[in-house]
Design a protein around this nucleic acid. Structure first.
Ligand code: ZN
Ligand code: ZN
Ligand code: ZN
Ligand code: ZN
Lengths: 132, 132
DNA sequence: ATTGCACACGTTATAGCATAACGCAATTGA
DNA sequence: TCAATTGCGTTATGCTATAACGTGTGCAAT
């Protein structure tokens, strides 16, 4: 998916996510954008829906939150499955790809004749800095 | 984690999950147990919390639902990471393990000095039967 | 036996996440 | 011009999850 011109709302939401140091929930984004005129959750969810479509934002299913893609311009989807390590202490998210993991999962999927639509890999734990 | 004797509520919730053909949300479980005296979400959530602890139930993060473990008695945790394929059409869930995937993810984690607590692998898509 | 503790339970209230449904305005393309 | 599409704003609603309080029961330590 290539990225069309963002609308104002999409740009505002994306900007908030890009500047954030941790994943944000839709309602947290809403709060950060009240000064810019945001009033209702749908304004955020509609923007997020498009940003996810464009591939510039990822949804972290295990924590109901969103992050800006860490690989701008690379089109994450073309690398196969995206995986995330999420520090539950500081919120830091590391986004990575592993072809071998993709290969194994896609092999399994093929063997089962299962048609994958969206695959989630999320490792929650503690990052090196927080492990103290 | 070995499984202590279940309480009445835990047994009721587990039973509903075991008989279900698809993952169930906590509120769906609640509805199915109204006749048995369940009145409030907490009755379900508290039971689920224990069942997850015992390892006899899994939570599917990407769809906010729960399933009975497909490998009773085997203690899923001892096999490493559990992965799920979820059919978005019929709800069928296939639970599987792949040592090579575990190995790759744990290798990455080690290289980053990240301390994993809980890892989620969920493939949403369409099962063979539904692919028609 | 009494006390203290741990644990499950029931209930009410509240917090947090997400979408349905309506109508309006701007854009685009026949 | 007309119709179709898309984004937007608003209100209302639904779904998911937990906080906080109090009750009862079983079981040890004293
Ligand atoms: Zn990405
Ligand atoms: Zn950290
Ligand atoms: Zn299992
Ligand atoms: Zn199916």
């Amino acid at each position: 998916m290539n990225t069309p011109q963002m609308t104002r709302n999409q740009a505002l939401v994306f900007d908030v996510l890009e500047k954030a140091e941790a994943p944000l929930s839709a309602y947290t984004i809403l709060d950060k954008l009240r000064d810019q005129g945001f009033r209702a959750p749908l304004q955020v969810y509609r923007a997020l829906e498009k940003l996810l479509e464009y591939g510039v934002v990822h949804r972290l299913e295990s924590i109901n939150s969103f992050v800006a893609c860490a690989h701008p311009g690379e089109d994450c989807h073309s690398h196969g499955i995206v995986a995330f390590a999420i520090c539950e202490s500081c919120g830091q998210v590391i986004e990575f790809h592993d072809h071998e993991v993709d290969h194994r999962l896609m092999g399994w999927v093929r063997s089962q004749k299962f048609k994958p639509a969206k695959t989630t890999i999320e490792i929650r734990g503690t990052c090196e800095a927080c492990a103290a």
